[in-house]
Design a protein around this nucleic acid. Sequence first.
DNA 1: GCTCATGTTCCCCT
DNA 2: CAGGGGAACATGAG
Length: 255
Amino acid sequence: MPELPDVEGFRRTFQRYAGGNLVTGVWSDRDELRNTNPTRLDRELRGHVFGAPRRHGKWLVCTTEGPVLVLHFGMTGELVWTTARKGHRHDRMILQFRDGNLHLRDMRKFGGVWLLRDERGLERATGPLGPDAWRVKRDAFLARLAGRRGGAKAVLMDQAVIAGLGNLTVDATLWRARIHPRRGMGTLSSREQAVLFDAMKAVLRDSLPLGRVPLRGDLLTTLRQEGARCPRCHRKLQHGTIAGRTTWFCAHCQH
DNA sequence: GCTCATGTTCCCCT
DNA sequence: CAGGGGAACATGAG
């Protein structure tokens, strides 16, 4: 589930329930913790108050007046607020507050939790990240693409180029921009690059209010199935592995 | 039993 | 060094 729009939804959830809230305890299993352990996590966060979390790409940076909690949601992660004291089978971490609990659930455990002393070590957790796909301005976006020789899909999926796009948002973006996923990024005209930027922003703009990726009538979820047709030309959509991921596209519309 | 899944990292090859 | 391909990670769903 988690691409930029999903993580933006998690940011809102975190802000709403944990922002300004005092941590009374932390439960966690060992699996999701990348640079700490359950005992330390509880000891370091208990008694601290979360501020407003920040999202960069698919990463959520949760500051307190002290330590910083960094979350990544992998393929199946999500944040769920409950007031019941009951855990879930896939809970990997539970932040406990006086008025409820914020659960990090992640069935496949590809996500991760880091605890930092401050924000200076952030890049050690996230690795190199390009500018956030939603906030990046046109000029900066074009500058990031300059000199890239890879395929359009591979370049857009690279978090070090632009942070936040995933398999579904990239397919939707390329479909809107009418650019073939295997097209060399270096072969795009400046007009095509501008169209690509607009398409990316449009996909994100449409997905962000939902706080999740699935978007009807686009190449996100509903159309990713055998026999699906292009909403523009009504020919059958093609699919295959491109840049290592299952990719859906319209061979007629996208060049 | 089989295949596939919205992410990232690592290794090997060109 | 840049880029592509594949495997691995863990746990389901169909």
